[in-house]
Design a binder for these strands. Structure first.
Length: 661
DNA sequence: GCGACAAGCTTG
DNA sequence: GTACGAGCTTGTCGCT
């Protein structure tokens, strides 16, 4: 029996299924009822998204299903800075802790990792089975946006699902203005904590209602049954990624500040020299429009390359082309390097640190339509690599010979402490192995079974067919490019060879690797037969309607996307399952190591030095245990960072208890 | 003053 | 129109 709470205390939402709980009696009745449910929805409203800084929850939304399948939603405001009666967080804490910690009740949430972070901050945990409707939404339709309200509109047909969100954001905009702050800054600092709890409550109840209905909708379709292999992994992964974000990445702040000062000084002196060389003609180096008019009109340079919008391009390729005749262009390239590091890799990282100088990113297991994990605020997956030219210029040595990039960003990613080391385990050529498995191409399979270097083998095979030596370098670019649907032009551009040579090489490549050619064709043919979709070995489905497009280039693009998704997506599955296996192993064996990062085909773990050998050995074992790829062996290799990310060295048994290298 | 978009850059 | 998948930043433009 559903407990009868009083009606919503405002005129326009007199709905007993959406209520605001502001008395102890109501709260207790609500908890009693929720404790008797099979599953509940959880959704916090907070004072910002920065759980690792000041943000805490300011109210909790909860929902449950009654015996008729109706959904009862309630919002419990506790820390709104304005607004009449609220319950105290101390008062409700024990009951919430007990409810969320009940292993028999399924917890439903849209991006439940967020609820997990704020729960942990209060000292309680989300225990028991989980259902993340955001993950389900991605699996149900991989082409639609993930936002809760959007999916309520698209998948449930609820009109104006965004309405309360809009109302709330209008309110936030007003508050921001009243505080003299930019909306973005205001939201970061205060979130919804200053919004009237009634308005926030209506919004929250609408969200929990949508979330519950989406769960019903997706399960009626059968998401968790249809995706029986990846679903349990994805649900456990929401917890593992939360652990990873909580663990954070230690940052060497003085070093990073030093880099920032250097690049800012470099930017300033470059600007001065650029304007001098221009004879006092001043323009904003960071503005592509001004740069374009400077290069093509003031300086009278000529280049045919255009942007997508048919404007004259001013990108790196063009500027490099001009560098031979124009010192200014060479300096602008240097300025862009410094600007990128300043804005993207120093300032923003320093702003995202917690009080212990730990950097906490935000991983999304369903961020990409291919099934890959994405990462933001900051993005650990595009931290720039150390620059060979800068290292050579600054230290006179190459990186491998002990040279150091003075602007290295990876060097700011330091160790966790005296006794800690970081292990980096990566899959060896995982995408090519996946391709070998799917295509069963005899040459590829043979190369992997015998352990021969694939790029050498490719150069040899293509060379034999053409009757002359082929470069390993070109072979390597071609091998990796296959997953992306490499074109002859693309190969020519990247390998810096003529288009004619690229064309000859690729023709020979596809003739020799007939299995790959056939696989690509059969993959797209099968996808078309099955309604423009294709399911991987792990069952993840990619839907690309454009496979049936009448427009040639759209169809071709769709084919490249399908091939890319098949290979990347399958490879991503190995990383995800490995993350879960490693997390489970650490718990089972009580190893005090911490997962800290994953970059597509790599997993990073901080471990006390005395556990290093054990961690490396077992990560390798767990990552390589994919017998379904037989006869293709899956191989994981390990590196170790004794100092920083920039100093990683291949793992060797004898280095395990050794000194910093 | 905000949101959307374009262009450019960084990764696997 | 010439590569697949991402995220972040600055500058520009139209709208309120």
């Amino acid at each position: 029996m559903a407990v009868q709470l009083s009606a919503f205390p405002i005129e326009y939402e007199r709905n007993p299924l959406k209520q605001i709980v502001t008395t102890g009696e109501k709260f207790e009745a609500m908890i009693r009822w929720l404790k008797s449910r099979k599953r509940i929805v959880v959704d916090y409203e907070t004072s910002g998204i920065a759980w690792f800084q000041h943000a805490t929850y300011c109210g909790i939304g909860l929902a449950g299903w009654d015996e008729q399948g109706r959904i009862w939603n309630a919002y419990v405001p506790v820390r709104h800075r304005t607004g009449s009666p609220q319950l105290s967080s101390e008062l409700i804490a024990p009951a919430i802790k007990d409810l969320l910690g009940d292993p028999t009740i399924e917890k439903v949430g849209h991006n439940i990792k967020f609820e997990d972070h704020f729960s942990r901050k209060e000292g309680w945990r989300i225990v028991g089975p989980r259902y993340d409707t955001m993950v389900a939404a991605r699996l149900y339709d991989d082409n639609a946006p993930l936002k809760l309200e959007k999916r309520a509109e698209l998948d449930l047909g609820i009109k104006a699902a965004m309405a309360w969100n809009t109302t709330l954001n209008v309110e936030v905009a007003k508050l921001a203005r009243a505080n003299g702050m930019k909306i973005e800054d205001y939201k970061w600092r205060y979130g919804y904590s200053e919004v009237d709890p009634v308005l926030c409550g209506i919004y929250c109840c609408t969200d929990t209602d949508h979330c519950a209905k989406l769960r019903d909708h997706y399960e009626q379709w059968g998401v968790s049954r249809y995706y029986s292999r990846i679903w349990p992994t994805e649900m456990r992964l929401t917890e593992v990624l939360c652990d990873m974000e909580q663990n954070g990445m230690p940052i060497d702040v003085p070093y990073l500040q030093g880099v920032r000062e250097q690049v800012r000084a470099a930017k300033e002196s470059l600007e001065v020299r650029i304007h001098q060389l221009m004879g006092g003609y001043r323009f904003n180096v960071g503005s592509d429009d001004e740069l374009r008019s400077t290069l093509y009109h003031v300086m009278g340079l000529r280049w045919e390359k255009r942007t997508k919008g048919n404007q004259l391009a001013v990108d790196r390729e063009v500027l490099e082309g001009f560098s031979a005749v124009s010192e200014v262009c060479r300096l602008i390239l240097e300025w862009r390097d410094a600007e990128k590091i300043d804005s993207t890799y120093t300032t923003s990282i320093l702003e995202l640190l917690d009080s212990r100088n730990l950097l906490h990113s935000n991983f999304q297991s369903v961020g990409a339509s291919t099934g890959r994990t994405s990462c933001k605020s900051p993005n650990f997956q595009n931290m720039s690599n150390d620059d060979e030219a800068r290292a050579l210029a600054a230290t006179g040595k190459k990186l491998k010979a002990g040279g150091r990039d003075p602007w290295s960003i990876r060097r700011a990613f330091c160790g966790r402490g005296q006794n800690w080391v970081r292990v980096l385990c990566d899959f060896s050529q995982i995408e090519l192995r996946v391709l070998a498995y799917y295509s069963r191409d005899p040459i590829m399979v043979d190369a992997y079974i015998t352990g021969e270097d694939l790029h050498d083998r490719t150069a040899k095979e293509v060379g034999a067919l053409l009757g002359h030596e082929c470069e390993r370098r070109v072979a390597k670019i071609t091998n990796f490019g296959i997953s992306y649907g490499l074109s002859e032009k693309g190969l020519a551009a990247q390998a810096k060879i003529s288009e004619a040579d690229a064309s000859i090489f690729m023709r020979a490549f596809f003739q020799r690797y007939a299995g790959i050619t056939a696989f690509r064709q059969e993959l797209c043919a099968k996808a078309r037969r099955e309604g423009n979709q294709w399911s991987s070995l792990f069952g993840r489905t990619r839907r690309i309607p454009d496979l049936a497009s009448d427009v040639f280039w759209k169809r071709k693009r769709a084919e490249r996307q399908m091939i890319g998704s098949a290979i990347q997506g399958t490879a991503a599955e190995l990383t995800k399952e490995s993350l879960v296996r490693i997390a489970d192993w650490l718990v089972a064996e009580k190893i005090p190591a911490l997962l800290v990062n994953t970059v597509h085909d790599e997993i990073q773990i901080d471990t006390p030095r005395e556990c290093l050998t054990q961690v490396v050995k077992n990560c390798k074992r767990l990552m390589e245990a994919f017998p379904e790829f037989h006869p293709i062996p899956i191989i994981a290799e390990s590196s170790v960072s004794f100092q920083t990310w920039a100093d990683k060295v291949p793992y060797k048994e004898e280095s395990a208890n050794g000194q910093p290298i």
